[in-house]
Nucleic acid binder design. Sequence first.
DNA 1: TAGTATAATTAAAACGTTTTAAATGCGCTA
DNA 2: TAGCGCATTTAAAACGTTTTAATTATACTA
Lengths: 338, 338
Amino acid sequence: MPIKLKDIAAMAKVSVATASLAMNGSPLVSEETRRRILALASVHEYTPNAMAKGLARRRSGVIGLVVPDIESAYYGKLVSCIDKNVRDAGYSMILSISNDEQAVERKIIQNFIAERVEGVLLAPVNKKTTDMTHMHLLETHKVPCVFVTSRYPQSDEPFVMVDLEEGTFRLVSYLLETGHRNIYFLCGSRDVITTSCRISGYEKAYKEKILDVNPRRFIECNRLDYDHAYETTERLLQSQSSIDAIITINDVMALAVTNAIMSSGKRVPADISVAGYDNMIFSRISPIPITTVMQDIELMSRNAVDLLFRIINSGIAETGAVMLRPELIVRESTAMKA
Amino acid sequence: MPIKLKDIAAMAKVSVATASLAMNGSPLVSEETRRRILALASVHEYTPNAMAKGLARRRSGVIGLVVPDIESAYYGKLVSCIDKNVRDAGYSMILSISNDEQAVERKIIQNFIAERVEGVLLAPVNKKTTDMTHMHLLETHKVPCVFVTSRYPQSDEPFVMVDLEEGTFRLVSYLLETGHRNIYFLCGSRDVITTSCRISGYEKAYKEKILDVNPRRFIECNRLDYDHAYETTERLLQSQSSIDAIITINDVMALAVTNAIMSSGKRVPADISVAGYDNMIFSRISPIPITTVMQDIELMSRNAVDLLFRIINSGIAETGAVMLRPELIVRESTAMKA
DNA sequence: TAGTATAATTAAAACGTTTTAAATGCGCTA
DNA sequence: TAGCGCATTTAAAACGTTTTAATTATACTA
C-alpha cells in the first residue's frame, strides 16, 4: 500500500536499479537523474522498507540490548546512554527486559537472532540466568556480543565495566582506615556477578589490613529496593549490637538504611556510618548526604557501543575489554570512628 | 550463513512450502511430516528470519513506543509495563526516546515507518514538539496510533490516560477545603499537555470555591528535577511571605520542596503544606511522607496496548479513548490550616 | 471400474529492496 | 570509420519467507 521504489522509478522513468542507486547516493548515477529521483521521493514521502532493505543487504542495522530491569535509576540511565550512542551510529536498537529470569532471557536472545541483530549488548549477569546455552546460541549464529556493567565469568567474552571490585575495595579500605571494623554489606545474591565482584573487593580490603573477614556480615537480599533494605536494617539493628557501618549495593538502599537507623534512634554517622553505590540522586537527597562510589555510566556506554561496533565492522571476534575506574565520593554519612 | 528454511526442507525431503506450513502449525500438513520437520528445525537451531517473514507477510510484528525520557521513575515504570504487555501479545517493540525535541521525534516516526511498525504508542505530548506533520506522516502511512499518558489536543486521536485535570482538581479542592488559600504550583511548560491539564484542574477547583485564581502562583519550570525544584523553592521562600502550600508535578520535586522548606527553618506541614504527584517512591521516603496523587500505570499501560491492538486488528480507526480515575493519597505533608 | 471427495504436498509468485554484470550511448582517437 | 573508453543505465538474480492455486496420492462411493 505505501509507495515503493518501483513507483518512484516509474515516475522518474528510470529502472528500479537506478532509483535504488540514487537513493543511496551512489556516484554511478548522474547528478540530474539523482536530483529528479530524490525530489520525487521527497514529494511522495517515500520511506524505504527496512525489512526489504535488511533482507537484501543481509544486515538488519539493529543491535539488541538486554537489561534485567529498567525501573531503577541506574539502568534507566544506562539504557538512555546506550540508546543515544547506538542511534548516533545510525543503528536501531531493540531493548529487552529480562527480569533476571532465565526463560525470559532465552526468549529474548532467540528473538534477537530472529531479528538478525548485528550485535548484542548484555547488561544482566546472573550466573544462573545467563547460562552457557544462551552464549552458545549467539555463538553459533555468529552474533557479536559485548557485556556491559559486568563480565561473563570465566570466559574471554569482551566486556566494558566500571571496576566493581576496585570500587568496593576503595570504599571498604577507606572505612577500615577511618576506624570501622564491623562493616555490614547489604548485597544481592552471590550468583549475580555484580555482587560477587564487590564481595571480592570487600574481602581484599580486609585482607590487606590483615583482618579476618566475617562472612556473616554479608547479607544477601533478594530484592534490592527501598522497602526491603529498610526492613533488613531494622532486623539487623535488633539482632546485632556492634555495627560500625552498613554499606549497600546501590543508593536507594543506602537511603533506606540511613532512614531506618535514624528512626531507630541511632545517629548517622556518629553511631553507624552508611555508604551506597552509583552516586545516583538518592545519595544526594538523603537527610544526611551519603558517601558513595561513582560510576561513569556515559563513558561506559560509549565504550561498550564503540567496542561492539568495532567487532561488528572488523568481523574479528577481538577479545577487547575495557575496565574503567570508579571514584569514591565521601559525604557526611561516614566519619572517623572514635 | 545461518541455516534457513530451504535447508530444513531439503533435509526433510519436502518442499519449502511444506516446511513453512509445518513451522507455522498449519493443519494442512500431516502429523508425521510436521514432527519430522520440527525435529530437524530444533536440532539445527533454525530461527526464521524476521525480516523475510515480515516482508512476505506484509506485517512486521513490531510496535513503536515514544517517550520523552526514560530516566525518571514514572516513565521507567511506564515503559516497563508497556513492554510487558506488548511482548505478551507476541509482538516486538521499538522504544525511542525523544527528549521532547521535535527533530528527534520526527526522525523517530520516520524510522517507525521505515520499520513498518504496525502501530505506535505516543507518550510525550508537547504541543510544540508533537506537531501536525508527525501525525500527518503516520496518517498517510495508515499507522494506527494511540496516545498514552496524555492526549493530542483538539483532535479525536485515541488516547488512554489517567485524568490529570481530575487528579489536580481533587488535590487542590482538598487543600482549599483544609483552609489553604495561597497554593503555589511548580509545574512544567504550559505547552506540555500534562501540565496544561493540571492547570485546568487547579483553576476548576478554585473557581468552584468561588475564589480568584492568581496566575502568578503557577511557576513553570523548564527542568523537572530535584535540583531545579530545590532552588526554585529557595527563591520562592525568599520572595513570598504568605505561602500556604506548594504542589508539584511529580514526587521528586515535592521531595525537593520539602527539603528546601525544612532547611530554610520552616516546618512541613505546620507552616507550609506540600504535595506531589504519581505516588512514586520519593513521596514515601521523604522525612515527612508526602501527600500525592496515584496513577495506576499498569492499568493505563494495559488499556493502551489493548486499545492499540484492537485498532490494528479491526483495521478500523475506532476513536476509542479511556480516561482512568486517579486516587488522592493523603499523607503527613498536608494538614488543616489554622 | 471409473469417478469423486479428501488429504497432503508442491510449484511458483510475491514481498521490496540491493547488487552484479551486462548493455547502451557517446564522444574521442587514430 | 572503426575501435575504444567512459559515463550511465538497466536486467535479472538474490535475500528468506509466505501463500495461493495447482498437483498428486489415497480412499471411498456408486
